[in-house]
Design a protein around this nucleic acid. Structure first.
Lengths: 258, 258
DNA sequence: AACTGTGAAGATCTTCACAGCA
DNA sequence: TGCTGTGAAGATCTTCACAGTT
């Protein structure tokens, strides 16, 4: 396939960079914590540290939303919480369905942070007739046969797929046909969806493989750098934003048997 | 990432771009599927479609690993599987510990794909004394008190944190002090770690918030685009945010429940 | 004096388009 | 002919550094 669609209208005015959008939830979380401690204002430096990002990046991110800060002072916590929430669309209610109530699906259903911010588990759906009616996290599981009806009756536009890989695409197709336009996929599969439907995936094994890659490099460098031992104690640190490896220089030996 | 330090040596010779590393697991999965079907070779076009990426991107990605293809023919599936596995460090065994055996931790422990590729759940750790000894996914849960001993005895370098947010940093510190240098964090917290330790996070609520952002845009454009009615059923329709369908490639990691 | 907002430089990543090999 | 490998152009994202505001 690969129909080279890619039609980007043009640089849209309200266009907030995708990278910025991905960080807004992080800022929101940090701000919420400050709000709970009744902190009135924060500087970009402080908030950036709490969110684990660079302060210049944070300021630029906020500049896409508008000028919500006060020079010489910082940002008003409550005001920012509201602005970011609004920008992310969290001031409205988002009914969500979880399809596939196995170990993972059940864990997701039980996940508290779910409801906390605008999201509400509207229904749990599973293909196993034996599960039908059983309550998970206080919500009765419904059978896949009623998927379309459930989506429509609840006005669901966001679906979470936690089924085995083999069933994911089929479930995805039905969700989309029923009106879902955003999907969070936990199944280890690449989903095909029509234009206009967003898919984000969460994949444990991919994350582990990326870590293994860096881990392997570290092991190789150990000797290269000639570092002694010292398993690193509690040093300070920083965070974790993306796993850019704090690259010790030198470079990889690369074992290579071609 | 690093506080101010950010010392990136220079463009490292064997330096594979982070974005490429993040896609290797995707290619590997697609290749493994082809391998199981005994397909001998694939073209960049076919493999790219299976992995949900652009073929030029895939070719460039592979070019960082070396020249493993044959012009006019394509890539040898088995050979590529081996090369990518080796590059990712999957030809060796990675003992992993999961800390926090609640709903999510148990789901992760039961997750099959775990062991499939080089990873092995070496131990399950939880702070609840009542859980000690109980088997989850066939592995007896051990108490947090023995964390250091467990890490050392098993030579663990990768740890998975699935504890409540409040315990995450503390667990992280102990893991790092005991020798863990790669962490996969499912708790909704920004972890501080010393240089040299990689952290990747998986955060459900962040992913949902990103989807909500785009969902909100779509709702807004519906009228803006002047489109009549049609609550967006199957039709195409300009995707507001273009978080490009398919695999949200190399962007930010993601989700995380607790 | 303290801190935001942002132009400009840099770094990365993506995509094009085509030379070059099988 | 068919398809890879890659220079070069473009698009995005990050970081610097400082003008501007309170």
């Amino acid at each position: 396939m690969a129909t080279g669609r890619t039609h980007r209208p043009a640089t849209r005015s309200r266009g907030i960079p995708e990278a910025t959008v991905a960080r807004l939830p992080l800022y929101l979380r940090a701000l919420t914590a400050l709000s709970e401690r009744s902190v009135p204002t924060v500087s970009s430096e402080e908030l950036a540290a709490a969110a684990g990002v660079n302060s210049a990046k944070l300021r630029k991110d906020f500049s896409y939303l508008g000028s919500y800060g006060t020079r010489g002072v910082g940002y008003d916590v409550e005001y920012l919480v509201y602005q970011i929430s609004r920008e992310l669309g969290l001031t409205q209610d988002w009914p969500v369905v979880i399809v596939g109530i196995g170990n993972l699906g059940a864990a997701l259903a039980n996940y508290g942070g779910f409801a906390s911010r605008g999201f509400r588990v509207a229904a749990l759906i599973d293909a196993d007739p034996a599960m039908a009616g059983k309550p998970v996290a206080g919500i009765p599981v419904q059978h896949t046969d009623d998927l379309e009806k459930i989506i429509k009756n609840n006005g669901v536009s966001i679906g979470v797929i936690a089924t085995p890989a083999g069933a994911a695409q089929q479930v995805c197709d039905r969700l989309v046909a029923a009106g879902v336009t955003s999907i969070l996929n936990f199944a280890p599969t690449v989903l095909s969806v029509p234009d206009g439907v967003d898919v984000r995936k969460v994949d444990l094994s991919i994350e582990l493989q990326i870590l293994a890659f860096h881990e392997q490099r570290k092991a190789g460098e150990e000797t290269a750098v000639g570092d002694g031992a010292l398993p690193a104690a509690t040093g300070r640190g920083v965070a974790a934003g993306d796993s850019a490896d704090q690259g010790p220089d030198g470079d990889v030996p690369a074992v290579m048997p071609a």
